[in-house]
């Protein structure tokens, strides 16, 4: 159904479980993908798996100059940029009373500020093309809050407000901006949990299981598609019913 042939997509955090699935889904629909992340090896492996039309674009998102250069590098590699997926994120969990400025700032910098910089960097080519898709990967905790994640929840909620404001500004230019808010998704991070911990989480999810990276990627694929041209400023919650928003 969704055909992205000829579109060029930049995906940050493509070395992770969700980012990798997003890159595969977009590539599978015909898009050329730019795979960004800090760890080059998994990016190279993913690019090799995808074959043609996959470019490795390493970037440290805590380095402002590198972040500003990334859209330009992506355009140089792919010949243009039509779809931006801000997926990369870090956590520095800590109870709030003990949270240091550094723990706060690093999470805000990587999760929120770098996303803003990348959105800003893709505006010009998208405005010129009169077509663009910005998809910011937020989180269920941005809407619900989560103990130990004051920094992360603030950054993820910030992404939603940012996304809506961008959507307002550029809707008349054929550019949409949306967020996807995953709930608990089975990735390398959740694999570390033991069975009891997993069972405890699952009792809070009406669907009774964690989501898959592919289920997040499917939402991103839809929002990236021409068919979603009238959907902008929204947040798609993909969480098995854990929070019905």
């Amino acid at each position: 159904m969704f055909d992205l042939t000829g579109k060029r997509a930049l995906v940050t955090g493509a070395s992770g479980g969700i980012g990798g699935a997003i890159a595969k889904a977009l590539h599978g629909a015909g898009a050329t993908v730019g795979l960004s992340g800090t760890r080059v090896e998994p990016l190279e492996a993913l690019a090799a798996e995808l074959g043609d039309n996959a470019h490795v674009l390493p970037c440290n998102l805590s380095d402002a100059a590198a972040v500003d250069a990334l859209p330009k590098d992506a355009i140089a590699a792919m010949g243009g940029l039509d779809i931006l997926v801000n997926n990369a994120g870090i956590t520095r969990d800590q109870i709030f009373m003990r949270m240091s400025d550094e723990e706060w700032q690093s999470v805000l910098d990587v999760n929120l500020t770098s996303s803003m910089r990348l959105c800003r960097g893709v505006m010009r080519p998208m405005m010129k093309a009169r077509w663009g898709r910005i998809i910011n990967i937020s989180s269920i905790v941005g809407a619900t809050g989560n103990p130990g994640q004051v920094n992360y929840a603030a950054a993820k909620a910030g992404m939603v407000g940012m996304t809506k404001s961008i959507a307002y500004e550029v809707a008349s230019r054929g550019i949409t901006a949306n967020a996807v808010a995953p709930g608990f998704i089975a990735t390398a991070m959740t694999d570390k949990l033991n069975d009891d911990q997993k069972a405890a989480i699952n009792t809070k999810i009406p669907a009774g299981r964690m989501g898959t990276p592919e289920e997040i990627a499917a939402a991103v694929l839809y929002l990236a598609s021409p068919e979603a041209g009238y959907v902008t400023g929204t947040t798609v919650h993909v969480n098995g019913g854990m929070a019905m928003l």
């Binding site: 405005m127 500004e169 230019r173």
Partner: peptide, 9 residues
């Protein structure tokens, strides 16, 4: 305001 940005571009 967006038009003015595009004009400059």
């Amino acid at each position: 305001s967006l038009d003015t940005v595009e004009l400059v571009m």
